[in-house]
Write a protein that binds this DNA or RNA. Structure first.
Length: 889
RNA sequence: GGGCGGAUAGCUCAGUGGUUAGAGCGCUUGCCUUACAAGCAGGAGGUCACAGGUUCAAUUCCUGUUCCGCCCA
């Protein structure tokens, strides 16, 4: 027998052992199969709300398909997360008084590896607390030995195909992490800053051009000034020259169409080394044969590198202050305006990004190449489907406007780029071998390897096939037969481009197949305030705390309950409570059944008609079939919210509220088989949402492991049990009738109490039940109705105190409610209210029906429905008027 | 600047071209009825952001406005 109340702590801790130590979770290489790869969490990470939701959804799908008889496998692991991890370790070392600068590359790497060995699996242990059914024994790591082979193989392949090149470009530079970043790793934030208007003196003239800039420190790197050739104000200056202030460098004035006439003064200073737009203009000018200089004025730390300058060694912001001060002194600063603009920040350390001219490795991303072209094709043709579908367009737009991918990073933690340089013959080649000692061209041993490492997203782009041991072809093919492409990828929007879109083209390139069939993009859960959940802002809610307080089951279910399709939601504790209460409800419904199993039960009333008993059983079985039909559809459409809600309402409002109550009039043997199958269905379909409690109850009640059950067999059994399909509607009618009567009874009791009138029972009389129910049920039904509505059912009353009554109709059943004479006044008002209500409805419908256009154009069944309704309303109105007359006496 | 999404009960959110627009929580009335007070039976609470349009009919479809959020540059 279960305890009185559900307590997650008694269940979950015990079951965790059973889930992960006793039962082996591993691929069985059987058909039908189902597979998912996890978005690998960062090794530095700890379980946050996004993970909790994301993994709940995946676990739902994995467990659901297990129960459907699939060989359902969830591949998991962690991501080395290059910069993020390096930063974490760097900070930790600093706390211990160890500076990164004082360490050799090898020493630093050793520290990071040690850190990884110690802390790197914490997040997976945290995932277990959610109860996820994943292939933990083979949890992969993006820098494990086999994975590294995949990365090298992929790089060499792309290199040899000519997709990878090294180039000097302006890239995003983080002067704190000391590395380049891809465009996607830069977070733009709108900020208030100053717009400085600065005079640039013309050569040989006493005239000035005034230029607005937000970054006066970059004046030091100006190598041209540009105006729009359509701008009448400035046409005359094109091809003249100006002096760059402070450095007094003579630079040309060029005409460039990209210059925004309306911004600032319409004159733009060109700083090709430290501005993306300026760099573009620089390249464009070069195509036109105009060669301007590129001057890099910053060190890697973003300090001024000009040795003979007075600003030498100053940080970029300090330099800005000084330069503004000097410009003012020289009388060259015209004015300062405040201005809002978007500024790029490092997505790992939030430092302001510096556009920086340097040597980097790129992958050519061109929609006309097969690499991207094939990705576009599979998305366009829905070979990969997005849920919700809007993301199809979002991804396609990104592919269509894609830019080359900067994949080199100047950090130590990552896959070292497998490119080698020969100092003798100057050969440069990519090599996937573990040890490379000689030049492949001239055999010289005077070679060295590239120092840069790869963008962490390069390795994660290979994830779906690398976790299945590609490029070990024998091993991979074994997995591929059953698990590739994977069925679905579940993720948040923010890594759609960083990760999802890249996996697609990598998989097409290397496996010649899509990596997954469906992509679910789920909502983001915001803090209750509507802000992003963030540890640093203190707005985060820790799922581990939720699990501790409410249990993993309630947390999982509560998360699904608050997340619709992809609309972001504010975190809602009430939904977690709702889930917990629901679990308690199920728990207690099982307790009731156990109670019936184990003791003699005193009936208040026992149903006499066996047909009615069968009907009640058939009724719940059919309701269950409808439920299952809906649930299966919701899974196919990835409508988890609808899945959970329909189970919720079925369990609570159908199974508990009605079926269990009905069984209180029925002998155990007469409903045992039925209730067992219903309970099994409920628990099995609940299992993907609340694995712990469903597992626990199933074992407690049936002494079986829920995961050994096959839903399909269960449903077959259920179908066999139904023996009265046709009359099953009668039970719905009974329920509706009871619900219809209840408020009236409740009101009478309430009014009597208010007026200090003793009213032991409300008396009602029912007529015409035979119109809705079979004759032989009726005496049973009268008793049921009496108990459920807490009223006494009479034939007719001769008692003088009940000589007033009024009549209600439910379909064709007349419900006569007897009224004590002291309550008559109250009831008159009650009926008047009812009457007014009906009259309003009547007028509305009559108006509609007298509208010719409505009659001509509306659907026939719509019109019929209105007509039917009108006649019903009319009947009620007539009756009520009669009653009012009666009550007036 | 370009694109996308949202605005529905006090709160968090579902939903729908056609009777009276729903849920949970909150509020409220009555019940400790032998599964459950984490419960049971009731009740109150909505100009479906605003303005136009399409339609016999709009909260739902279209356009615009305002506000909020996200993505890209």
């Amino acid at each position: 027998m279960l305890n009185k109340n559900y307590n997650h702590k008694e269940i979950e801790e015990v079951l965790l052992k059973e889930f992960y130590e006793v039962n082996k979770i591993e691929p069985k290489f059987k058909n039908p199969s189902y597979s998912i790869v996890i978005p690998p969490p960062n090794v530095t990470g700890s379980l946050h709300m996004g993970h909790a939701l994301n993994n709940t959804i995946q676990d739902f799908l994995v467990r659901y398909h297990l129960l459907k008889g699939y060989d359902s496998v969830w591949f998991i692991g962690t991501d080395h997360a290059g910069i993020a991890t390096q930063n974490v370790v760097e900070k930790k070392l600093l706390k211990e008084g160890i500076k990164r600068k004082d360490l050799s590359k090898e020493e630093f790497l050793k520290y990071i590896w040690d850190w990884k060995e110690e802390y790197g699996n914490i997040i997976l242990e945290q995932f277990k607390k959610l109860g996820i059914y994943a292939y933990f024994d083979k949890a992969r790591f993006t820098m494990d030995e086999e994975y590294t082979k995949a990365v090298k193989k992929a790089f060499v392949h792309l290199f040899n195909k000519g997709y990878i090149y090294k180039g000097k470009r302006v890239i995003n530079w983080c002067s704190r992490c000391l590395t380049s970043l891809s465009d996607l790793e830069v977070v733009h934030k709108e900020k208030e800053n100053n717009l400085y208007y600065v005079k640039y003196k013309l050569e040989d003239e006493e005239d000035y051009l005034i230029i607005a800039t937000t970054r006066p420190e970059t004046i030091l790197a100006d190598t041209a000034v540009a105006v729009n050739p359509k701008d009448q104000r400035y046409i005359k200056y094109i091809n003249k020259r100006v002096f760059v202030p402070i450095v007094n460098r003579l630079v040309p004035i060029v005409g460039v169409e990209e210059v925004d006439i309306s911004f600032g003064t319409g004159v733009l200073k060109i700083t090709p080394a430290h501005d993306f737009n300026d760099y573009k203009i620089y390249k464009k000018l070069k195509e036109r044969g105009i060669d301007i200089d590129i001057i890099n004025i910053f060190t890697k730390e973003a300090c001024i590198n000009l040795e003979d300058s007075k600003y030498y060694g100053l940080d970029r912001f300090k330099a800005r202050e000084e330069i503004v001060k000097d410009l003012e002194q020289m009388g060259l600063l015209v004015k300062v305006e405040s201005h809002r603009s978007n500024i790029g920040h490092c997505y790992r350390c939030d430092n302001i990004i510096e556009p920086y001219y340097s040597d980097q490795w790129f992958i050519r991303m061109d929609k006309n190449d097969p690499l991207i072209g094939r990705a576009i094709e599979v998305v366009k043709s829905d070979k990969i489907k997005f849920y919700p579908s809007v993301f199809k367009k979002v991804v396609l737009d990104w592919y269509e406007n894609i830019e080359d991918w900067c994949v080199s990073r100047q950090i130590v933690w990552g896959h070292r780029i497998p490119v080698f340089y020969c100092k003798d013959c100057l050969n440069i080649w990519a090599d996937e071998r573990d040890e490379v000692k000689n030049c492949i061209k001239c055999n010289s041993d005077n070679i060295y390897q590239e120092e840069d490492v790869l963008d962490t997203w390069f390795s994660s782009a290979l994830w779906p096939f690398a976790v299945m041991f590609w490029p070990d072809i024998d091993k991979f093919n074994k997995y591929k037969t059953f698990y590739y492409p994977t069925n679905v990828l579940t993720t948040a929007r923010e890594i759609l481009f960083l990760w999802v879109s890249r996996m697609i083209f990598m998989s097409l390139e290397f496996i010649n197949d899509i990596p997954f069939k469906d992509v679910i993009i789920h909502a983001v859960i915001l803090a209750p305030s509507g802000k992003r959940m963030s540890k640093s802002l203190g707005t985060g809610i820790d799922p581990l705390e939720l699990i501790e307080k409410y249990g993993a089951d309630s947390t999982r279910m509560g998360l699904i309950l608050q997340v619709g399709e992809s609309q972001d939601v504010k975190f809602n504790y009430e939904k977690i409570e709702m889930a917990k209460n629901f679990i308690n409800k199920i728990w207690n419904s099982i307790r009731y059944y156990q109670f019936r199993l184990s003791s003699n039960y005193d009936f208040k009333y026992k149903l006499k008609d066996k047909d009615l008993v069968n009907l009640i059983n058939s009724w719940i079985l059919i309701k269950t079939l409808y439920l299952i039909e809906n649930l299966e559809r919701y899974v196919k459409e990835y409508k988890f919210f609808d899945y959970v809600m329909s189970l919720y309402h079925f369990v609570w409002n159908v199974f508990c509220d009605w079926y269990l109550e009905f069984t209180k009039f029925i002998e155990l043997e007469e409903f045992k088989d039925t209730i067992e199958i219903i309970i099994k269905v409920i628990l099995v379909y609940l299992h993907p949402i609340v694995p712990f409690v469903s597992y626990y109850i199933y074992k407690n009640l049936f002494n079986e492991i829920i995961l050994d059950i096959n839903i399909n067999d269960l449903v077959d059994n259920l179908n066999k049990r139904i023996d009265d399909m046709e009359n099953v509607k009668a039970i719905d009618n009974l329920i509706e009738l009871i619900k219809f009567i209840r408020p009236y009874v409740n009101d009478l009791l309430f009014v009597s109490k208010q007026n200090n009138i003793k009213l032991e029972n409300v008396f009602i009389h029912l007529q015409g039940l035979e119109k809705l129910f079979k004759d032989n049920y009726i005496s049973d039904l009268l008793n049921i109705i009496s108990i459920f509505t807490k009223s006494k059912i009479t034939e007719l009353s001769d008692d003088q105190s009940f000589n007033k009554y009024y009549d209600l109709y439910y379909n064709d059943v007349l419900i006569r409610i007897f009224i004590e004479k002291d309550l008559i006044d109250f009831y008159r008002n009650y009926i008047l209210k009812e009457l007014n209500n009906k009259i309003q409805q009547k007028e509305k419908i009559e108006k509609l029906l007298s509208n010719n256009e409505f009659i001509n154009k509306a659907n026939l069944d719509v019109i019929e429905n209105y007509k039917k309704e009108l006649s019903q309303i009319n009947e009620i109105i007539t009756k009520n008027n009669q009653i009012l007359n009666l009550l007036r006496n």
